[in-house]
């Protein structure tokens, strides 16, 4: 924001194409996407349409075949070097040799936080994901959903200005999922960061987002956008508002119109 470009987008993806040489798969084709400051963008689309790939391109974990990605006005590479984002992968990526607390503390260590600050923040985060009593356990002692909560806590711990989340709540039960949805929203409202969020759940996308990006597969393209104009703060009642259902239907229509035989939920079940 300091470098005064015309539109201070947090993420700007321009004409990005990604082809994997192995199997010659075009995972993404000519993607144009901008994420404004404080925006919460959800990516939704059938399995294999390139959502994870797009996230990894934004995070500079893989390089696009064509096109450019800028994050906070810098190249994606520079942004990564500056610790510009936190990421949660589709599966919990934990380090077996570190305790739960130490897994959460890892990015803080890398950022050079003092031991005391680290301990305090880790305690807060453990409380947030309700894993305080598991601080000294090792990852193999936790269930899949618990592991995913650790990964979420770790990504949130250093309050990055950009959060990239790949189906973070996919492995959780409905109750935990709704609670963490609310927690994520309140964190987002407090810290004012931007979020790019991948999900298979239309209602989750609508509930959380400022904007939903619908993608279509083979090759991965953006099929359309749905602006979510639900008021903030969003609460349990938001899910019961008539407008909520209208928006859910709108996203569903957009997904269906792209010639997909299956609804995303059904796809998700089939996985």
């Amino acid at each position: 924001m300091s470098d005064g470009t015309a539109t201070p987008a947090v993420v700007r993806v321009e004409g990005v194409t990604k082809t994997f040489p192995r199997g010659n798969v075009t995972a993404l084709e000519n993607i144009e996407l901008e994420v404004a400051p404080r925006e919460f963008v959800s990516l939704i689309g059938p399995s294999g349409c390139g959502k994870s790939t797009l996230l990894r391109v934004i995070g500079d974990l893989i390089e696009p075949t064509a096109g450019t990605v800028r994050v906070n006005g810098k190249s994606a590479r520079q942004a990564r070097r500056d610790g510009g984002y936190g990421i949660v992968f589709q599966e919990a990526v934990l380090y077996d040799w570190r305790s739960i607390a130490k897994n959460i503390a890892l990015p803080l260590e890398m950022l050079g936080w003092s031991r005391r600050r680290r301990r305090e923040r880790v305690a807060e985060m453990l409380e947030l994901v309700e894993l305080t009593s598991f601080a000294d356990h090792h990852p193999w002692q936790l269930s899949g959903g618990m592991q995913q909560r650790v990964a979420i806590a770790r990504a949130l711990s250093f309050e990055p200005s950009l959060l990239l989340m790949d189906e973070p709540f996919g492995a959780l039960d409905e109750m935990t999922r709704e609670r963490l949805n609310l927690e994520l929203l309140s964190i987002w409202e407090q810290t004012g960061n931007s979020v790019v969020f991948v999900t298979h759940s239309i209602s989750e996308a609508v509930f959380l987002s400022s904007r939903v990006v619908v993608m279509s597969p083979r090759p991965g393209r953006i099929a359309g956008f749905v602006e979510i104009d639900l008021p903030h703060p969003r609460t349990v009642e938001t899910r019961e508002a008539p407008r909520f259902f209208e928006l859910v239907t709108e996203v569903r229509e957009l997904l269906r119109r792209r010639g997909e035989h299956l609804l995303p939920e059904e796809e998700a079940v089939l996985e």
């Binding site: 610790g83 936190g86 990421i87 992968f89 990526v93 380090y95 890892l106 890398m110």
Partner: peptide, 22 residues
């Protein structure tokens, strides 16, 4: 595991740090 290395990259870890920590 490749994802574990990738996560370290997301923290801008140097090769040396990835070596030491992963």
């Amino acid at each position: 595991r490749p994802r574990q290395v990738e996560l370290m990259r997301s923290y801008a870890a140097s090769e040396l740090e990835i070596w030491r920590r992963v």
